[in-house]
């Protein structure tokens, strides 16, 4: 299992889509391709934009199918972050 701490890379307001894309391509995708489970640790992140979460996870759902959600866990998410992740996860599954 690989735990990825987001706060050091994105700060307390996660809005940088370029950073999200980099985390996805350089850390999440290699871990998933290596058959690892991934924990995205949001400790210290107080809020996020839908665009950030979309850039972080939407392409994973599209490429690996929604089964990828069995291999990714979201940790230490406050209510706002939880809901934004929920919106993105839901609309990506509805769209596919």
């Amino acid at each position: 299992m690989i735990s990825i701490k987001l706060f050091p890379m994105v700060g307390e307001f996660a809005e940088n889509k370029d950073a999200a894309k980099e985390i996805r391509l350089l850390q999440i995708v290699p871990a998933l391709d290596g058959k690892e489970e991934v924990v995205l640790d949001f400790e210290g992140v107080n809020s996020a934009t839908q665009s950030f979460i979309h850039a972080l996870i939407s392409d994973l759902i599209r490429k690996y199918g929604n089964e990828v959600l069995d291999r990714i866990s979201f940790q230490h998410c406050n209510e706002t972050v939880r809901k934004i992740i929920g919106i993105v996860v839901d609309y990506m599954q509805e769209a596919e």
Partner: peptide, 23 residues
């Protein structure tokens, strides 16, 4: 919601969902 100039695909691209202005 769900409309972006970057693609016609529902759900958007890896980078754009077409949600920002609706939010």
């Amino acid at each position: 919601p769900g409309i972006t100039g970057t693609t016609k695909r529902i759900g958007g691209t890896e980078y754009n969902a077409g949600a920002g202005l609706f939010f």
